[in-house]
């Protein structure tokens, strides 16, 4: 029983992390049709900023956390400004390849300017200590992660439903040009989308960091790959889909860990991606794919 509860919690916390990352991808995609593969490097930038703040300013964890969030938001907005604006109205594959290029540049910049080797950042370990609840051993980090994700999703929903800017962003995901025809500045909508996306990446970065305790140039690669998969699973461009896909992916991963015999441990990824491919064959546009606007004239 304990084991089962632990695994469920595992699945939830993995899923929460993936949901955060996938939401970040989905919010940008829903508005401008861009698959932002450089999202991973935003996460890595957050990680490196933790290192910079710790070694230059202070090791105070709250300063470090706030600083990392800020850097992630700024980096995300800056990337849009510099790299993605020229391809804003281009087709999806042009945007995807641009994002690959940006990701490659940033990874190698980290390598060139900081170090190819992992850098230890241990001042977030305090988030992660074991506690016993009703006789079950769990880690606080998992609780924090799940709760934070839940709060972030709620805030995002409120923002999108209640604020006038949120309404504009939802409208932009349906018909961007029409939103501009309402006098709403395209640059501002896109910038806010990237800022939200960066904030979500920053949150994810904190939890990944608290678990791993080190950052290296390819730090963001695996998380963004998972986020990408989660988005596709849920239906690209659908925000509820991203959340569903994230949690589903978390569940599949933990399920694989539980079900696969020890000797097949290295094959976990292969099975996870195999299941994902099968789901896509079953539903090519993902589980909750958004309704396609049929541009009928009447």
């Amino acid at each position: 029983m304990d084991y089962a509860i632990q695994q469920v919690l595992n699945a939830l916390s993995f899923g929460a992390e993936y949901a955060l990352l996938a939401l970040g991808l989905a919010i940008v995609f829903s508005i401008m049709g861009l698959v932002n593969f450089a999202h991973g490097e935003i996460i890595a930038a957050g990680g490196y900023s933790m290192f910079a703040i710790t070694s230059l300013l202070t090791g105070n964890p709250f300063v470090v956390i706030v600083g990392a969030l800020l850097v992630a938001v700024l980096a995300s907005v800056l990337l849009e400004r510099v790299a993605f604006r020229p391809v804003r109205y281009a087709d999806a594959s042009t945007g995807l390849l641009t994002a690959f290029g940006v990701s490659m540049i940033l990874q190698n910049l980290f390598l060139l300017l900081v170090s190819p080797r992992p850098i230890a950042i241990t001042n977030l370990y305090f988030l992660n200590w074991p506690i016993e609840v009703a006789g079950v051993q769990i880690s606080t980090l998992q609780v924090f992660e799940t709760v934070t994700t839940a709060i972030a999703i709620c805030l995002l929903v409120v923002f999108l439903k209640k604020s006038s800017f949120g309404i504009a962003m939802r409208a932009a995901s349906l018909d961007f040009e029409m939103v501009r025809l309402m006098g709403i500045r395209a640059n501002r909508v896109v910038a806010v989308a990237f800022a939200v996306s960066g904030l979500l990446a920053g949150l994810a970065c904190i939890f990944i960091m608290a678990r791993r305790g080190s950052v290296d140039p390819t730090f963001g690669f695996n998380p963004v790959l998972k986020a990408f998969v989660a988005c596709v699973l849920g239906g690209f461009g659908s925000l509820p889909g991203a959340v569903l896909g994230g949690f589903l992916l978390g569940a599949i991963e933990v399920g694989m860990l539980v079900l696969l015999p020890q000797s097949y441990g290295g094959m976990k990824e292969a099975f996870v991606f195999g299941i994902v491919a099968l789901i896509l064959v079953w539903r090519p546009d993902g589980i909750l794919s958004p309704a396609v606007e049929k541009g009928d004239k009447l």
């Binding site: 006038s164 309404i167 504009a168 939802r170 409208a171 018909d175 029409m178 025809l181 709403i184």
Partner: peptide, 23 residues
């Protein structure tokens, strides 16, 4: 007011009007 109307179909009627007044 474009051809083919192009209302924001997933948004509520009130939200459509609100967005018209965004400026």
């Amino acid at each position: 007011a474009p051809e083919g109307r192009r209302i924001f179909s997933n948004l509520s009627v009130r939200e459509n009007l609100l967005i018209g007044a965004a400026t």
